[in-house]
Amino acid sequence: MYVPKHFREEDLVELHAFMSGNPFALAISNQEGVPVASHIPVILQAEPGPYGQLLGHFALGNSQWKTFDGSQEVLIIFQGPHAYISPSWYSEPEISVPTWNYAVVHAYGVPRLVEDPDDLMTLLGDQVHVFEGTDRLAWFLQPENEAMRKKARGVVGFTMSITRLQGKYKLNQNRSLTDQEQVIDQLETQDDVSKGVAALMRKRIAQ
């Protein structure tokens, strides 16, 4: 990923928080010489390893899981909010051009399949716990429930120790503070995704 210095994010705590906050990820690998990709829910565990590990699963019918057997490096992308930025929002629109603001994290590693049925149930239970939260109406996976174990045979789990992380927060850091604030003001009048970009920009300015 092309990451100019202005937009580089290397703080591990920030990267982990971003990944946990945007868990519906894009997994990319190579299958018989062809790039393949799947949109899947992935959870982050801060340990083990210097960058933590990812846990996820594929539907059994999605053959991409066969590339997650420890034989190749794969890329998992976590995408945050993004928005078009008009030159008219800057102090000098006549010498400016349109751009796109966004935040994204790329995680690299060599994933391995979870083949033991009990370990798979634990992985699925961990995912459910993260996504359901602690609400009193939260649904819990019962690992000894035979019906649940039968359904689990329809998915393939994986773990991936992260060997490399790239974070890119392209949020007008190369513009003046005045321009950044004017962009924030415009984004806050738009849809929720654009407001998400505005929130990220405001957080960066406050740091």
Rank of each mutant, 00 (worst) to 15 (best):
P4K: 03
K5C: 09
H6C: 12
F7M: 00
E9M: 06
E10K: 07
V13I: 15
E14K: 14
L15C: 00
H16W: 15
S20I: 12
S20N: 11
S20Q: 14
S20G: 10
L26F: 12
I28A: 04
S29Y: 01
N30C: 13
P35V: 03
V36W: 04
V36Y: 01
S38V: 10
S38C: 13
S38H: 09
S38G: 00
H39R: 15
I40M: 09
V42Q: 07
V42L: 02
I43H: 02
L44W: 05
A46K: 15
E47T: 15
E47F: 12
G49M: 02
P50S: 13
Y51N: 04
G52R: 07
L54Q: 13
H57G: 01
F58G: 05
G61D: 11
G61V: 12
S63H: 15
W65T: 12
F68S: 10
D69I: 09
D69M: 11
D69K: 05
G70A: 03
S71K: 09
E73P: 08
I76W: 03
I77K: 02
F78H: 15
G80M: 07
P81S: 10
Y84F: 13
S86K: 08
P87A: 04
Y90L: 07
S91K: 14
P93Q: 01
P93I: 09
T99V: 02
A103F: 00
A103G: 09
H106S: 09
A107L: 00
Y108N: 00
Y108R: 00
G109H: 04
G109D: 02
G109N: 04
P111V: 02
P111N: 08
R112A: 14
R112Y: 05
L113K: 06
V114Y: 08
V114W: 03
V114S: 05
V114D: 11
P117G: 14
L120C: 10
L120Y: 02
T122H: 03
T122E: 10
L123V: 15
L123Y: 15
L124R: 00
G125L: 04
D126K: 15
Q127P: 01
V128K: 12
V130T: 14
E132T: 14
G133T: 01
G133S: 06
D135I: 08
R136C: 03
L137N: 09
A138E: 06
A138C: 14
E144T: 13
N145Y: 11
N145P: 09
N145T: 00
N145F: 07
E146M: 10
K150C: 08
K151N: 08
K151A: 13
A152K: 06
R153Y: 00
R153W: 01
F158I: 09
T159I: 08
T159V: 14
S161N: 11
S161R: 13
I162W: 00
G167L: 03
G167A: 01
G167P: 03
G167H: 08
Y169S: 00
K170W: 04
K170R: 10
N174I: 10
S176G: 01
T178D: 14
Q180C: 11
V183E: 03
D185G: 07
Q186E: 12
Q186Y: 06
Q186C: 02
T189C: 01
T189R: 15
Q190R: 15
Q190G: 02
D191N: 15
V193R: 11
K195F: 01
K195A: 02
G196E: 10
G196H: 04
G196R: 05
A199M: 00
L200W: 07
L200A: 06
Q207V: 04
Q207T: 06
